[in-house]
Structure formats: C-alpha cells, structure tokens
Amino acid sequence: MARATAPARKALTTAIAGTLAFVMFFPILWIVVLSFKSEVDAIRAPLQVLSSGWTLDSYGAVQERSDYFKHFWNSVIISLGSTFLGLLVAIPAAWAMAFVPGKQTRNVLMWMLSTKMLPPVGVLVPIYLLFINFGLLDTRIGLVVVLMLINLPIIIWMLYTYFREIPGEILEAARMDGASLREEVLYVLTPMALPGIASTILLNVILAWNEAFWTLNLTASRAAPLTAFIASYSSPEGLFYAKLSAASVMAIAPILIMGWFSQKQLVRGLTFGAVK
C-alpha cells in the first residue's frame, strides 16, 4: 500500500536523510577532491582547498613513485583467483547439500560456518611459519589459497541459499527426462542459478579485495595488494595528502562501484541467511 505523503513532510525527511548521508559519504568525497589538488593546496583549510586549482599530477606521481599498477594487479589476481578457486570447490558442495539433504547436512553446514568464526589471529603464528617453510611468504599463490579458505564458507553458504530457492521438482523433471547428473548440473542447475552465482562472485571479490589481516601480515612488497600498498603510506616521512588521496581513490573506486550493485547480496552473504 503506497500511501500519499504530504510533500512538506517528504521534503523534510529528504533534507534530514540527505544531510546525514552526506556526512557519512563526506570522507570519501573529500579524498576525491584532495586527489585532484597539489600537495601544497591539499593541506590548506577546507574552503581554501575548494577554491584552489585542480590538477591530475597526483595520479601520475603515485604510479611513478610506487608502481601502483603492480599492486592493483596483485589485488585483482588475489581476489579473483581466490573467488574462482572457491567456486570450483563450492558449487558441487552446495549442490549436494541443497538437493540431496541428509541427516548430517545441517551439521556439516554449521561446521563449515564455524570455521569462519575462527579469529585469524588465533592461527597467525602457524600460518606464518608454514608460509616461511614452504616459501609462500610474499607470494600471490599463497594469498590466493589463504583467502580462498577463509571465504570458502561464505561462498558455499551463499550458493546453498541460492540453490535452495530452485525447486527440486525441476531437477527431478530433468532426471525423469533422462538427464545425467552432469547434464542436470550443466543444462538446468547452472543456467538457473546464474544470477546467484554472479552475486556470490561479486561479494567475495569485494571481501577478498578489502581483506587486511592476512594481506598485511603475509606480504612484503612483491605480492602486496592495494591494502598493504596503502598501509605503506602510514609512515610520516612518506606523507603527502594529495598522493595518499589519489592512491586511496584508485584503491577503493573499483570496489565501491561493485559494492553498489551488491547491497542485497551483502545482507544475504554476511548474515548467513539469518536476515532476509
């Protein structure tokens, strides 16, 4: 039931909500502004900053000084790699739990989730030592594997909830129609679950992109993704507001855009279906 609201009241709500939204969004907006300023202008008072000239210099400087694209590619490879590796393992597992539920299914699912509750710092030491032993420290493959493992429960869980929405009767119909298990998954399940699979990829790329415990602790420079690259700006001697802003904008822009498309999936993926 859409009820007619008085325009005056609607205007008032819009004004209040708009102001609060602007406050929340302001830090992001501000670094976008600063990224187009010179270093000298960037540290002035806000009004002077706005009235100063615009420049693209900082973006060029970030690439020159610290090889931004290397870290960007590390982020891309690590987040996409861990997500797709995870899907490969998760799709069959989610199929099994969604369509052939047994007495243990519920327990297995809960146990998988419980691995996500493990605080990373609890296993920091052994993982660090194992990485040293196997020569995985500061390698992309090492991070791909670790991020795949920490996000696997979320991937399985999301796929499971999407698969469960597909009526079992349709897969049974396929079975009656003579489809083998492979054909059933390939021609009926996967095309039907495509939107769900896409959302799963989206959310997990975001989570992997922003992961900042393992990426900070297991990389030095070679395999460092953007999270670690930005952290290197924390030392005071390397502090330049405009460059930091430019680097930050480039680090968050891709994911911000993806994030806007994934609001719904975010709720489903991060609450494990407890809120719909």
Binding site: P167, E169, I170, E172, A173, A174, R175, M176, D177, G178, A179, V188, P191, M192
Partner: peptide, 20 residues
C-alpha cells in the same frame, strides 16, 4: 532402475518447467 530408464513421463504439481 534410475527414473530416466523406466520409460515413464511425469507432470509435476509446480509444472517444473525450465525457466531459462
């Protein structure tokens, strides 16, 4: 025998059509 090899066809309550 698996369903497909029984030579039977089934019409489901929800029709179970392939939506795609």
């Amino acid at each position: 025998l698996p369903p497909a090899r029984r030579g039977l066809a089934m019409v489901f309550q929800s029709y179970a059509l392939y939506p795609h």
